[in-house]
């Protein structure tokens, strides 16, 4: 699949944002983000919500006909994309309620109202990440996406990035980072593992073959003529091909940038309390996730490719 920048940016940034909101709200409800207090929490949630908003805005960039974007709310019954839109719209009043609560009534521990909004915000944030992942996971045309591993990855990565962000915020706010930091380490580890499982899983081709596509099950089938002499929309959208070496290098980069380095830096943060490490952790993680998301598309093989000569998807 063609890796569209807008979509990569959208999923990574909003993912991080929703992760941050979900995590902060959760801790807040469970007795507060250590050492942040209402204001600090408010700042964290605000940052999370803004990141999410930023991402969502970016996502509209890849619409060829944005003037009809408002219609995206009406097929909630069947369309994951429509559901994403609807939940996104529900999310903002909710998170606004939460922010107001934090502002006026203080943290969840102090105000039941804040608590209620916190829980709702957390749920919606997680749901949206899940729904987004389902847009991809529900496509039977792309074996590399059509798996529960995809929602798992999306959720864990979003939470991991949220945790690292929160650690960074806490650190900068001079708050103790033991809890959030440890949480971040745990989530980074889980995300790394589940991503590893994913990479392993897509390693072995499992999708449909050119034989069933063309309906010729005896003998090898090869494309003779594509019937077009220049790329069409289909090639531009689905025909993306990257050399295996490049893919391998990028996978490595994902592990170094998105998992190992942040992990090490957070460990460093916990050991040395040198705050400066935190922003680096965030930067590297996000960079890594951009590559991870690029791979998510670049490694996805749509069945259309079978009709253009690919042996299996």
């Amino acid at each position: 699949m063609h890796p569209a920048l807008s979509v990569i940016f959208f999923t990574v940034v909003s993912g991080a944002g929703f992760g941050l909101v979900a995590l902060t709200a959760a801790l807040d409800v469970l007795g507060g983000v250590p050492g942040l207090g209402a204001q600090g929490t408010l700042v964290a949630v605000f940052i999370g919500a803004s990141l999410a908003a930023l991402g969502l805005m970016a996502s509209t960039l890849h619409l060829a006909n944005p003037k009809n974007a408002w219609r995206a709310f009406f097929r909630f019954r069947t369309s994951w994309l429509s559901r994403e839109a609807v939940f996104a719209v529900l999310f903002y009043p909710t998170v606004l309620g939460y922010l107001l609560g934090l502002w006026f009534a203080g943290s969840a521990a102090q105000s039941p109202w804040t608590a209620v909004f916190a829980v709702l915000s957390m749920l919606l944030a997680l749901i949206i990440v899940f729904v987004t992942s389902m847009i991809y996971a529900s496509l039977r045309t792309i074996p590399q996406w059509n798996s529960p591993l995809v929602p798992a990855n999306y959720l864990l990565l979003s939470l991991a990035s949220g945790a690292v962000l929160l650690s960074c915020i806490s650190a900068l706010a001079g708050a103790p980072v033991q809890t959030v930091g440890t949480l971040a380490l745990l989530l980074i580890f889980l995300a790394g593992v589940s991503k590893a499982v994913y990479f392993f899983w897509i390693g072995k081709p499992q999708g449909p073959t050119i034989n069933t596509a063309v309906g010729m099950t005896r003998g090898q089938v090869r494309l003779l003529e594509a019937g077009q002499s220049s790329d069409s929309f289909l090639d531009r959208e689905f025909g993306y091909q990257a050399p295996a070496s490049k893919l391998r290098r990028r996978r490595l980069a994902v592990y170094v940038l998105a998992f190992i380095m942040p992990f090490v830096l957070i460990v460093g943060l916990l050991r040395t309390d040198s705050v400066v490490l935190a922003p680096f952790a965030v930067a590297l993680l996000l960079a890594g996730l951009f590559i991870e998301r690029w791979l998510f598309f670049a490694e996805a093989r749509h069945t259309v490719n079978l009709f253009y000569g690919r042996q299996q998807c």
Partner: peptide, 27 residues
């Protein structure tokens, strides 16, 4: 055509490459 927002998702969902975005009309 009056309702399409050109998100391409349907094309992604089509196994057969039957859908093509008109890059001029965006539909």
């Amino acid at each position: 055509q009056d309702k399409c927002m050109g998100c391409n998702l349907c094309a992604w969902a089509c196994p057969y490459g039957a859908r093509e975005l008109d890059e001029d009309s965006g539909t």
